[in-house]
Structures are given as C-alpha cells and as structure tokens.
Design a binder for these strands. Structure first.
Length: 117
DNA sequence: ACGCTGACTATTA
DNA sequence: CTAATAGCCAGCG
C-alpha cells in the first residue's frame, strides 16, 4: 500500500482496502471513504462495491455495511440473501439485515493502517 | 448538457 | 427520542 495507492482510481483503492478486511470482520462505507481521503463520499464507496462484482480478484463486498451495521446492499448481490449467508458463513451473526455485535466486529481501516505503518 | 438516482452520513427540526 | 433535509459525486437516460 505504498504511494501507488494514489495512482489508482478511487474505486480500485476501495477494492484493495475491502480485500484487506479480515474474515469475520466488517467495516463501513464511511470508514473506507474517510481512509481514502473522501469522508463525504461514502456513496462513491457504494458505487465502487457495485463495480466490484466485475473486478478481479473478487472483493468481499459482503463485509461492507452501512454505519448502523445494516446490510443495505444485500439486494445488489445475486440473491438477496447471498450477503447475509456469506456473513453467517464467516461466523457473523445477522438478524433482520443487521450485523449483531457490529461495534465489536467493526474493522477500522484507518486505525489498522496506522498501526501497520 | 441537464437532471435524477443511489450499497451513505451528519445535521437539523 | 424519531423524522426529514441537505451535502456528496459518479453513472445513466
């Protein structure tokens, strides 16, 4: 994640960051946007997720939820239940489209990257 | 070129 | 407390 990050498109940066999310953890659109220097453009992160279906390697978009821990993008997967199913497969409890214990499972890219550098 | 839409968020009423 | 509003900015008709 050297300065090459700057050369890539915002979407690509989002994809790479999302791939860094550990299994069984989740993060938010806002956190990603903020980490990439666009705290006001959480919506663009959502768009990036939309693009992520065609991107290789595959992006674990199911680990990205909104600020409330809600699976706002579940309907954009192949099947509406695809996202929840994948999260549960990783040990994340999902109830009524909301990640349970979200605050504890939340993975802050900003904090992690700081610690990494 | 213009306006509407949206996998968001923060603020105000 | 909940509900509405306004920034946000890249696609699409």
């Amino acid at each position: 994640m050297p300065q090459d990050y700057m050369d890539k498109d915002f979407f690509t940066q989002v994809h790479e960051l999302v791939r860094l999310i550990p299994k069984g953890r989740v993060t938010t659109y806002g956190a990603i946007a903020k980490c990439l220097g666009m705290p006001r453009s959480a919506r663009m992160v959502g768009w990036a997720m939309n693009q992520s279906h065609d991107v290789i390697p595959l992006v674990p978009a199911h680990r990205v939820v909104n600020r409330a821990g809600m699976l706002s993008g579940k309907m954009h997967f192949g099947h509406p239940d695809e996202m929840q199913r994948r999260l549960e497969a990783e040990g994340i409890q999902v109830l009524n489209n909301c990640v349970q214990d979200f605050q504890n499972l939340f993975w802050d890219p900003w904090k992690e990257l700081e610690n990494l550098s």
